[in-house]
Amino acid sequence: MEQQSHPSSTEGGTQEWRVGRLAEATGVTVRTLRHYDQTGLLRPSGQTSGGHRVYDQQNVTRLYRILALRRLGFSLAEIGSLLDDPEWDLAAMVTRHATQIEHTIAIATRLVAHLRVILGELDRSHRTHPDTLFTIMEEMSMLDTPVRDTTTLLVYDDLAAAHAYLSETFGLTPGALERNAEGRAVHGELFAGDHAIWLHPTAEGYRSPRQLGAVSSMIVIAVDDTDAHYADAKEHGAEIIQAPVSQPYGVREYGARDLEGHLWYFHGPLD
Rank of each mutant, 00 (worst) to 15 (best):
Q3H: 10
S5I: 11
E11F: 03
E16I: 13
R18E: 10
A23K: 11
E24I: 01
E24C: 01
A25Q: 03
V28Q: 08
V30E: 02
L33I: 04
L33P: 11
L33S: 10
R34G: 09
R34V: 10
Q38M: 08
T39N: 06
T39G: 05
L41C: 03
L41M: 03
L41V: 05
L42M: 04
Q47W: 13
G50H: 10
G51E: 03
R53N: 09
Y55M: 07
D56V: 06
Q58F: 09
T61P: 00
R62G: 01
A68P: 12
R71V: 07
R71S: 11
L72P: 03
L72S: 06
I79D: 00
G80T: 13
S81I: 01
L83I: 05
P86A: 09
E87F: 00
A91G: 05
M93C: 12
R96G: 12
A98I: 11
Q100H: 11
E102H: 14
H103P: 01
A106T: 14
I107L: 10
V112Q: 07
V112F: 02
H114Y: 07
H114D: 09
H114Q: 12
I118G: 00
E121S: 12
L122N: 05
D123V: 11
R127F: 08
D131H: 05
T135Q: 15
I136F: 02
I136P: 15
M137G: 03
E139L: 15
M140W: 01
M140V: 13
S141P: 00
D144S: 11
P146N: 03
V147C: 07
R148F: 07
R148H: 12
T150A: 14
T150N: 10
T151Q: 09
T151H: 05
T152H: 02
V155Y: 06
D157Q: 14
D158L: 11
A162R: 08
A162T: 08
A164M: 01
Y165T: 01
E168L: 01
T169K: 03
T169D: 03
T169I: 02
P174D: 06
E178I: 14
E178P: 00
R179M: 03
R179W: 01
A185I: 09
A185K: 09
V186W: 04
D194C: 05
A196H: 14
A196K: 15
L199K: 07
H200A: 04
P201G: 11
A203G: 14
Y206P: 00
Y206V: 02
Y206K: 15
Y206A: 13
S208A: 14
P209G: 02
Q211L: 14
L212T: 09
G213R: 06
A214R: 13
A214I: 14
A214D: 12
V215D: 11
M218Y: 00
M218S: 13
V220S: 04
I221R: 04
I221V: 14
A222F: 09
A222Y: 09
V223K: 00
A228W: 01
A228K: 10
Y230C: 03
A231W: 09
D232P: 00
E235K: 15
H236N: 12
A238Y: 04
A238P: 07
E239Q: 15
Q247V: 02
P248K: 02
Y249I: 07
G250M: 07
G250I: 08
G250D: 10
Y254T: 05
G255C: 04
G255E: 13
A256K: 02
R257M: 09
D258C: 05
E260W: 08
G261W: 10
G261A: 05
H262K: 05
Y265V: 07
G268H: 01
P269M: 01
P269N: 06
P269Y: 03
L270W: 02
